[in-house]
Design a protein around this nucleic acid. Structure first.
Lengths: 234, 234
DNA sequence: CACCGACTTTGATAAATCGCAAATGAAACC
DNA sequence: GGTTTCATTTGCGATTTATCAAAGTCGGTG
């Protein structure tokens, strides 16, 4: 098995504060995996055999209902943890993760989690910070879904996406991975039809530019006003 | 300062697996507080000076938006942790907690959290399990809000409430604390009017019995069918 | 290069739910 | 006991958004 170089992870926030030899030791029990676009990385309800760090690509975390509807819980970008069921005292994954692009991940056997958390307390702390941030994110999302109507929810979602995955282009800030109207609908609890209508309307106002599987925000500031409900309707 | 007896917490799930003397030591740094009905226990955005265990009463955790709307994130019942911002690497509370009834809580200084987590690893693990369960709950709620319409959401909420806080009576299972139509609306992202109409309709079908600030589920099973969308409409 | 499939747009209609207003009811407070 | 306050109910019109249906568009593939 080829050695994994420490530089793969040394810059990542989760591994911040760890010694070089700690990183090396952690990498000894990691496997590096390549996952093809649109392939599952782990599956909801499945036994949580591993936890992961995404090194390259993008993943979407999806939670499905008994009757087959699904909701995109979040997108994962390189450097982020995913599938950390063990850290939460779970033995199965509460959601699925699917590669949106070809991905490279590091995977550790789930049973190592407790050892890691005690042997590298900084890593444990950092992980719990991540969990805390996510709990907060999800709660914010609940508040949004409870209090805002669709237009503002979609606006907020797009703003979060460009914050997390935005790439600056001449035309504005591009969401840097393929995303369909359907995906946006699944993030915001609406239908692809409504998302399509919103994007068309926004395009006419010059806020965004969108095409097949891509969205560029031309005027983030104005979109934010709209998201916050502070824009007089014109 | 009066000694707190170990029996206060020894039976609680969070403290499970701890030695008697560990409990005693933990209690040495705890204060016991009495909080009057409808008084805040901690406030959103405030510095997270303490974390708490609810010993008696009920608390609701509320998250407010910039424009003053609020959402009830969850109810806390005796034995549960709350305000554990430190465990999530936060320095401020992400939500407020308000006593629904007169409450008794134990409070520990927030700065003790890291010491506790290392000195009593079982306690740490149990706490993270709690966090994991809550993360899962909130995500489930997002999925519900994204995929279900109001009637099913309200049904699910009531079912969760009786699971957590139900008291069996002759008439059925009573939600064991005062709860208004407005409260239920804030849990489910709807209006008190819609909740009122739903409860009236359900009452006519014999599913529930409700009055001022109280709800009794007469037929949990049928309500579940409705919540799951498996009931033919009659 | 034509075809296929996936994604997107758009219109028309229907349904769900909100917002407003007003009336009623029940508990709490002098 | 009377009054006040808060919670609840109910009707109705207005809006939002879903649903259904159909057509258009783009990109890739054989």
């Amino acid at each position: 098995m080829s050695r994994l170089d420490r530089s793969l992870i040394s810059g990542l926030p989760v591994f911040e504060g760890l010694q070089a030899d700690d990183l090396d030791r952690m990498l000894q029990s990691a496997r590096s995996l390549r996952i093809e676009k649109e392939t599952p990385i782990f599956e909801q309800g499945g036994e949580a055999h591993s936890f992961f760090v995404l090194l390259d690509g993008r993943a979407r975390v999806v939670k499905s209902t008994a009757d087959g509807q699904q909701v995109i819980v979040r997108y994962i970008v390189p450097g982020e943890l995913m599938g950390i069921a063990q850290a939460l005292g779970r033995t199965t994954y509460p959601a699925s993760a699917i590669a949106v692009l070809d991905c490279v991940v590091l995977a550790w056997p789930g049973r190592l989690w407790p050892e890691f958390a005690t042997a590298y307390p900084t890593f444990g702390m950092n992980t719990y910070k991540t969990v805390g941030a996510r709990l907060n994110d999800v709660q914010t999302q609940v508040v949004e879904m409870a209090t805002e109507q669709v237009e503002r929810r979609v606006a907020h979602s797009l703003l979060r996406l460009i914050k997390q995955s935005g790439r600056k282009t001449e035309a504005g800030i591009l969401i840097d991975f393929p995303i369909t109207r359907q995906d946006i609908a699944e993030m915001t609890g609406t239908t692809l039809h409504t998302v399509s209508r919103l994007l068309t309307a926004w395009e006419e106002k010059g806020l965004v530019r969108s095409g097949r599987q891509q969205v560029t925000i031309k005027e983030p500031h104005r979109l934010l006003l709209l998201a916050e409900g502070r824009s007089r309707q014109d």
